[in-house]
Amino acid sequence: MTTDFRLRGSSPWRKAAIVLAEIVFSLYSLIIFYPLVNMILSSFKSTREIFQTPFALPSALDFTNYVTVWVKKGFGRYFFNSLWITATSMVFVLLFGSMAAYGVSRYKYKLSTLVYMLFLSGIMLPLKAAIIPLFILMKRVNRVNNPLSVILIFIAMGLPSTVFILSGFMKAIPMDLEYAARIDGCTEWGIYRQIVMPVVAPAVTLVTIYNAVPIWNDFFFPLVFLQSNKWKTLPVGLTSFFGQYSTDWGLLFTGLCIAIVPVLILYLFMAKYFIRGMTAGAIK
């Protein structure tokens, strides 16, 4: 194709441009990889080793830092808190989100545009600005220091984009399919469950990644609502850990590895889905 930048058969200027681009991207890849590699290497070092030989390989493959951080410092618990809070939130984001998307895209009624706009307004409103009323609200129903508060907020955080993306896909499904099913005696729930949902399954994957990554990483709401050690999520646990052990760099790097490496491994296997999922809201 003439639209590609090719090395062979191009003018010297083009060749120079390609070489320059290669240099830029190689350097940038290095800027991305090196800090991560250094983080992993440092997690096997003692603090003294980190300061004395910051660029060297660790003297031994020593997992004591990991045992200390995972067991004694509670990162195991933080990790599983993050895991089940994200999973629970996502179940409801997907269930309520797909139901609402079905409700606004597959029926004709006067208020459908209004309902759709109400959901969409959630995309534009910065949820952090709502923290004071949310805190007063949760205090009143006694849900501060209770994961339910955060789960509820995460569900609300995920719903607008889920409704936006899924209703777009659902509108594209031909109505004939639904009429045929209805004649066969299928209920409304049955049409949603057995006809519409299977068709939009690929979009559900997108929405899952689009929302699960920010929820897993979210810091602000768990910081406000989950201060007890029992319920801390990984980002909040990391924060209090950095406050307490600010001088033990070996442990700090280990904590960072526990927060970053699992995501990295998941990405290695599913890069395509992550890229498509994360950018799903911004690409029509």
Binding site: A100, S121, I155, L159
Partner: peptide, 11 residues
């Protein structure tokens, strides 16, 4: 269900 949560938590 979805609208209630969005209304209570966001709006």
């Amino acid at each position: 269900p979805g609208l209630t949560i969005v209304a209570v938590v966001i709006l």
